[in-house]
Design a binder for these strands. Structure first.
Length: 577
DNA sequence: TTAGGGTTAG
């Protein structure tokens, strides 16, 4: 336009500013600023508001402030833009000062102020502005509900949600569903979605993303498949966020091929998408594919981050790729500029320890620039047990107890160790200590989805309505297993009880209850998918291998760290876990 | 000019 000597007018400049705000950085705004001066336009409210909007949107607070201060007159909209810009960058007191000075406040002003406090986690101030607000609209309620959700205060969020002064929209439902997902209440998230459907509120892409995340955590493949079909039916655009949620859901539900299909079908992939597929491949023990995908990621010009290296290193660990793991760990900062964190040391201790390089793992822990946490020491402890190094096991386990006396898992580690060397007196001491401190062992919990319902089984809990049938079925399986040569391994049992009791404690472990339920309730030949919150126990691992042969079923168990795909008497982990 | 979104070691 300028080349042809046709000069833009003020409104053209304002339109261009608006377009620039959504696509570009600060330089363009400065260029327009210069043009406005050069072309001799008067700085009226219209142009100044356009400029202010531009700077606010691209986050250039200094320039926004400059334009704001220079404005001869400021209307309510200008104030709102400024309050919102200040709020987004955490300047609550500056925003509040402007808010208090306003002669007339619109609902935009109130909402921006509440949102500003919520963003900072200052829920008391957010609530007091909310309570004073005479112009509450649906955005006001949504903002406040989200503020509680982000702090994990779900009860307060739900209270507002249930007593809203106006009709709920899609965002309201999404806020509540996402809140449940972020607080790991996945089943409530899904039941809230069913309520949303019952109220005939139309879900959108954001609803799907939260639901996919919930399904991924629960390993609820039927739900995940339903969402995938729904996304297609509604013709939702699969962008990087929705695409990533689908990749993660399929990979966490045991369908890595479907995850790969989504991944390769995405026209654009960001670091989240690459990370999800790398982490996914790692949990299946596909170490070579992890490394190849990492190489492809660099070819695609996407810079790896800390999460990428968690996937890469844990992939090497699950596949026993020791030298590759060592190499990538040593290069992660020097070559890729990613500082190793606690989680990367954790992967390395696991990788080295599992492979039997106990001294190297121990040296790495000693050389860590930060204090090791319970996960790192837990990996070390596991390594000590693999190597049957009793002295070091005891040292590490006691150190763990000192570090976190409220984590029940640590007592179990120590107690299991004492039990394995028949030190029953110490086992008893450990148990007493747990009772004294009111510590409870995290119960083993396994879930399985049957006909769209996620069934949960907790070790030692017989509340499932079909428990007695499952128990009878398991007893029957147990006999068959023994006839196939299965020898019950009771090392994972904590208590100092007689052999028979120990055996029954193992026999009713949560993963076995879930597998038995799956065998009872699904048609022959259908793969059984189970998700467990802890590591699979060694006896269950051996038993499920035999069950897969006995019943001719693929059994896919996702435990705390990886997938075990049991088929025809063996497991995809090749007993390296 | 105001509200809701995804990946992380055992």
């Amino acid at each position: 336009m300028l080349c042809e000597n046709v000069f833009p007018d003020a409104s053209t400049i304002a339109l261009l500013l608006r377009a620039a705000a959504s696509v570009s950085g600060n330089k363009l705004g400065d260029a327009f600023h210069c043009q406005i001066v050069k072309l001799g336009f008067e700085f009226n409210l219209f142009l100044q508001t356009g400029l202010l909007n531009f700077y606010a949107k691209v986050g250039n607070l200094e320039s926004a402030k400059r334009v704001f201060v220079e404005m001869p007159e400021r209307d309510s909209v200008v104030h709102n833009v400024m309050i919102s810009a200040l709020g987004k960058q955490g300047y609550a007191s500056d925003a509040r000062k402007l808010f208090d000075e306003m002669p007339e406040r619109s609902s935009f002003s109130w909402n921006s102020m509440i949102s500003c406090y919520c963003r900072l986690g200052d829920i008391e101030n957010a609530r007091s502005v909310f309570d004073c607000n005479p112009l509450k609209d649906v955005i006001t309620w949504n903002t406040m509900i989200d503020g509680y959700c982000k702090l994990g205060q779900l009860t307060l969020a739900k209270k507002l949600f249930d007593h809203m002064g106006c009709a709920k929209n899609t965002v309201t439902w999404n806020t509540m569903i996402t809140g449940y997902v972020q607080c790991r209440e996945f089943r409530t998230a899904i039941s809230t979605f069913h309520e949303m459907q019952a109220q005939h509120v139309r879900p959108d892409e954001v609803t799907m993303i939260s639901l996919l995340s919930a399904s991924a955590h629960l390993g609820a493949l039927d739900m995940g498949n339903w969402i995938h079909a729904y996304i297609r039916r509604r013709n939702f655009k699969i962008d990087v966020v929705l695409g990533n949620a689908l990749i993660d859901m399929f990979s966490k539900c045991g369908c890595i091929d479907a995850a790969l299909d989504v991944f390769y079908g995405l026209p654009k992939k960001n670091v989240f998408c690459w990370n999800s597929i790398i982490v996914g491949l790692a949990t299946y023990g596909y170490g070579r594919e992890v490394i190849n995908t990492f190489i492809d990621m660099q070819t695609a010009g996407v810079k790896p981050d800390g999460v990428t290296f968690v996937g890469l290193l844990s992939g090497c660990s699950h596949s026993g790729l020791i030298s590759e793991g060592r190499q990538y760990f040593s290069q992660m900062f020097t070559v890729y500029g990613v500082e190793p964190g606690l989680e990367h040391y954790g992967c390395m201790v696991d990788l080295l320890g599992k492979a039997g390089f106990l001294e190297e793992a121990l040296d790495l822990v000693k050389a860590m620039p930060m204090a090791p946490n319970t996960i790192v020491l837990g990996s070390l402890l596991h390594a000590c047990q693999v190597r049957k190094d009793a002295k070091l096991t005891e040292q590490v386990a006691e150190h763990l107890l000192d570090m976190d006396p409220r984590d029940g898992g640590n007592y179990v580690f120590l107690s299991n160790f004492y039990a394995s060397v028949n030190r029953w007196h110490d086992v008893e001491k450990c148990r007493k200590l747990m009772v004294e401190k009111g510590v409870q062992k995290t119960p083993g919990c396994s879930s399985i989805e049957v006909d769209n319902v996620v069934h949960e089984f907790v070790a030692g809990d017989s509340s499932h309505p079909q428990f007695s049938q499952i128990k009878l079925f398991l007893d029957d399986i147990g006999k068959k297993l023994i006839s196939l040569g299965h020898q019950v391994d009771m090392t994972p049992v904590l208590h100092d009880v007689d052999e028979e009791e120990k055996e029954s404690a193992v026999r009713y472990h949560s993963e076995r209850l879930a597998v038995a339920f799956g065998l009872m309730c699904t048609p022959p030949g259908k793969p059984i998918r189970v998700v467990k919150n802890l590591r699979a126990c060694s006896d269950c691992h051996a038993a499920i291998k035999l069950i897969s042969k006995l019943f001719e079923r693929d059994i896919i168990v996702r435990d705390r760290s990886r997938f075990h795909h049991f088929r025809d008497g063996s497991c995809s982990c090749q007993d390296y876990w």
